[in-house]
Simulated scan of single mutants.
Amino acid sequence: MNTIRAAATASTLVLALALAGCSDATKKEFGIEANPPDAFQVGTQPPLSLPPELGQLPAPNPGEPRPQAADAAADGADILAPGGSTAPAAATPGEQALLQQSGPTPPAGIRATVNQSALIASKPPGFVSSLMGSGPAPAPIVNAPAEQQRLQENEALGQPVTAGATPQQTDEKPGLLHRFLNIF
Rank of each mutant, 00 (worst) to 15 (best):
A90R: 11
L13Q: 13
R66Q: 05
A89G: 14
M1D: 06
S102T: 10
A18Y: 08
E147R: 02
L17Y: 02
L57D: 08
T170N: 08
P107R: 13
G83Y: 12
A69G: 01
L48N: 12
L177H: 04
G103I: 06
H178I: 13
F127Y: 10
S134W: 06
E95L: 12
S130I: 04
A20P: 01
S23N: 13
R150A: 03
L181H: 07
G175S: 06
A59E: 14
A121R: 10
D78M: 01
P52C: 03
A108H: 11
V142G: 06
I79P: 00
G84A: 13
L19Q: 11
V14G: 03
P37W: 03
V142W: 03
A118S: 07
D38Q: 06
Q168A: 11
L157Q: 06
P136D: 13
K28T: 00
P124Q: 09
G43A: 15
E155G: 02
G94A: 15
G175Y: 02
A77F: 01
G63I: 00
P106A: 12
T9C: 03
P140T: 03
I120W: 06
I4V: 15
P88S: 11
A72N: 02
G31W: 04
A6F: 14
F184A: 09
P106M: 10
A70P: 01
R150E: 00
T162G: 03
G103K: 02
Q152S: 00
N182E: 14
F184R: 10
A77V: 09
S11V: 10
A77P: 00
T170L: 10
A108N: 11
N2P: 08
H178T: 11
H178D: 13
E29T: 12
G76Q: 15
Q101F: 09
G76A: 15
R5A: 10
A16F: 10
P167R: 02
G135W: 01
E64Q: 15
N2L: 13
L48H: 07
F30K: 04
M1I: 07
S23V: 06
E172F: 09
R179D: 14
E153K: 00
S102C: 07
G158L: 02
P58N: 07
D24C: 07
P140A: 00
D24A: 11
L176S: 11
L54R: 04
E153C: 01
L50Y: 14
I32K: 04
P93W: 05
A139Q: 11
A70R: 02
P124C: 07
I32H: 02
E64C: 01
I4Q: 09
A81V: 12
G103L: 10
R150N: 01
A81T: 08
A73V: 02
P104T: 12
T12E: 14
N61T: 05
Q116G: 07
A18I: 12
G175V: 08
Q45H: 09
Q152E: 04
G135Q: 01
A118F: 09
A70K: 02
A156E: 00
A18E: 12
N115D: 15
P106T: 04
R150L: 04
